[in-house]
Simulated scan of single mutants.
Amino acid sequence: MRANCGCKEGTTTNITIEGEFGADALWCTKCTYNLDVEELPVSDSIKDALLDWAAQYGVWIDLETNRLVEDAEQLEKTHNAAGQVLADKLKAELGIAYTIQFTPSVMSAS
């Protein structure tokens, strides 16, 4: 099974895990289409973990002031580490039929 995306073929097996405000954590690596976590043939625990992880994206930013919060760098580092763990779990569940990569956030470094 392939994930639906915006590529010419309409589906992909090349997935990037990356956080973004208000979006699922999965993206087509080729066309950057935001993929629906629920469409992937993985366990509910992985789906739930991906949704939870995505919901925590940006906790290191005060959205009212658009400034980094105290300990922003550590919060982002922890979020990135959790994202890498999820990428590894997703790779294990999907197997070699999919190519999975993780793109860490670098917001606090700027």
Rank of each mutant, 00 (worst) to 15 (best):
residue 52 D to N: 11
residue 110 S to Q: 13
residue 109 A to F: 12
residue 1 M to W: 01
residue 73 E to I: 06
residue 69 V to W: 05
residue 65 T to H: 06
residue 52 D to H: 07
residue 58 G to C: 08
residue 100 I to E: 03
residue 45 S to K: 10
residue 47 K to F: 03
residue 40 L to V: 04
residue 108 S to L: 05
residue 17 I to K: 01
residue 105 S to C: 14
residue 78 T to A: 15
residue 80 N to T: 08
residue 26 L to H: 05
residue 58 G to H: 06
residue 85 V to K: 13
residue 59 V to Q: 14
residue 7 C to A: 14
residue 92 A to M: 09
residue 65 T to S: 15
residue 31 C to K: 04
residue 21 F to Q: 08
residue 107 M to P: 00
residue 28 C to H: 01
residue 57 Y to T: 01
residue 76 E to T: 02
residue 105 S to D: 11
residue 87 A to N: 02
residue 43 S to Q: 08
residue 26 L to I: 10
residue 14 N to W: 02
residue 22 G to V: 05
residue 52 D to M: 06
residue 54 A to H: 07
residue 71 D to F: 10
residue 61 I to D: 06
residue 66 N to P: 01
residue 14 N to K: 15
residue 85 V to R: 09
residue 6 G to R: 13
residue 47 K to M: 09
residue 91 K to S: 15
residue 4 N to S: 13
residue 22 G to K: 05
residue 15 I to D: 00
residue 102 F to V: 07
residue 44 D to T: 06
residue 49 A to F: 09
residue 31 C to W: 04
residue 42 V to A: 11
residue 102 F to Y: 15
residue 91 K to E: 15
residue 2 R to K: 15
residue 81 A to R: 09
residue 27 W to G: 00
residue 5 C to P: 03
residue 93 E to R: 01
residue 100 I to C: 04
residue 88 D to R: 10
residue 45 S to Y: 10
residue 70 E to R: 09
residue 20 E to W: 10
residue 41 P to Y: 00
residue 73 E to Y: 07
residue 101 Q to R: 12
residue 18 E to M: 13
residue 38 E to L: 04
residue 99 T to G: 10
residue 80 N to P: 07
residue 82 A to G: 10
residue 78 T to W: 05
residue 59 V to W: 04
residue 63 L to Q: 07
residue 22 G to W: 09
residue 33 Y to D: 12
residue 49 A to M: 07
residue 70 E to S: 12
residue 41 P to L: 02
residue 105 S to G: 10
residue 52 D to S: 11
residue 75 L to N: 05
residue 86 L to I: 08
residue 63 L to H: 09
residue 17 I to Y: 02
residue 20 E to Y: 12
residue 20 E to R: 12
residue 67 R to H: 13
residue 40 L to R: 00
residue 45 S to D: 14
residue 42 V to M: 08
residue 69 V to C: 03
residue 36 D to C: 01
residue 101 Q to V: 13
residue 55 A to D: 15
residue 87 A to P: 01
residue 14 N to I: 00
residue 23 A to H: 14
residue 106 V to T: 13
residue 99 T to H: 14
residue 9 E to F: 06
residue 72 A to P: 04
residue 43 S to F: 04
residue 87 A to D: 01
residue 4 N to F: 12
residue 19 G to Q: 03
residue 95 G to T: 06
residue 40 L to D: 01
residue 67 R to E: 15
residue 86 L to C: 05
residue 59 V to P: 00
residue 38 E to I: 03
residue 48 D to W: 04
residue 6 G to T: 07
residue 7 C to S: 13
residue 24 D to H: 08
residue 21 F to T: 06
residue 30 K to M: 03
residue 36 D to S: 09
residue 7 C to Y: 05
